[in-house]
Computed example of a mutant assay.
Amino acid sequence: MNEARNILQMVHPLDASTVWSRLSVEARTAAEEEPVLASFLNATVLHHDTFEAALSYRLAQKLSDNEMNAMLWRDVAMSAYAAEPEIVHAALEDMLAYYQRDPACKQLTQPFLYFKGFHAVQSYRVANWLYRQGRGSLAFYLQSRMSELFAIDINPAARLGKGLFIDHGHGIVIGETARVGDNVSMLHGVTLGGTGKDNEDRHPKIGNNVLIGAGAKILGNIKVGNGAKVAAGSVVLEEVPELCTVAGVPAKPVGKCCGNAAQTMDQKI
């Protein structure tokens, strides 16, 4: 294990000041090692005093376009963070989930600066806040912008828990009435969709600590229990019990799950 990983394991995972300090150290070290990135790292990380200030700046950089410039998006994000500090808390847990579950993630700066799954989820969290404030027009504009940028489509009315890890991210679709618990891991190509044109509650309800493999489709108002595992490429049309592994088209139970597959990313059936 590298030094940064050892340090994180010795502190409380939700200690925002410690995480921010570690992120700043990584950015400063990277700026010294690669001077061509120094201006970028100063603007995105080192210039800011808090995690939320840096996060709002990074999201604004990504989301800006001809209609909504970066300053406007930053004001929107900071308003969300000030009104609901839990959004920042969730972002910290999301970032740590990437660091802890993705072997390709060597430093906290990687998801914060570069991973589109992380950026998409943080954009969703702002859009969800807007939606709940009755600002649907801007929430849906943000959803559209997020989909264009990251190839990830999350309805702002969906409810996603903290500690969410979306690996690679490309092709994720999460519908309006979907619910996702805490500490869930999903890979690219996952759909949490409906089965028709019902106007009511029509999307899946995913429990805590669930692992959803690449390309899996979970359709309809069905529950996937805590600690379950959905194998890659499966089409799930029926309820999945807690601690159950399902696979196939349509998906059927194929065994028990240990309950921590979302953390270990163990995708074996």
Rank of each mutant, 00 (worst) to 15 (best):
K106Y: 00
A91D: 14
C105W: 00
H89E: 05
Q107G: 04
Y124V: 03
L92F: 01
F112H: 10
K116H: 03
V88E: 13
L96P: 04
P85G: 15
G117D: 01
E84Y: 12
L108E: 06
A120K: 01
L96I: 10
A104T: 07
E84M: 11
A104C: 10
H89N: 11
Y114F: 15
Q122W: 06
E84R: 14
P111I: 00
Q122P: 12
L92P: 02
A120C: 03
T109C: 11
K116R: 02
R125A: 05
Q107K: 14
P85A: 14
Q107A: 12
A97D: 11
Y98S: 00
D94V: 04
V88Y: 00
P111V: 02
R101Y: 13
Y114L: 11
A90K: 15
A97E: 11
H119M: 07
Q100A: 10
H119E: 04
L113T: 03
F118K: 10
L113I: 09
P85Y: 14
F118N: 07
A120G: 06
Q122N: 11
I87C: 09
Q107P: 04
M95T: 07
R125W: 06
T109N: 09
T109H: 08
R101G: 15
Q110T: 09
L108D: 05
L92C: 11
K106H: 11
A97L: 13
A90Q: 14
D94Y: 06
F112C: 00
V121G: 01
C105P: 10
F112M: 08
F115M: 10
D94W: 04
H89R: 14
Q100R: 14
P111A: 08
L108K: 07
V88T: 15
F112Y: 10
I87K: 03
Y98H: 09
Q110H: 11
Q122M: 05
L108P: 02
P111K: 12
Y99C: 11
R101W: 13
C105H: 01
R101I: 09
C105L: 12
R101K: 14
V88N: 15
P103W: 02
L96G: 08
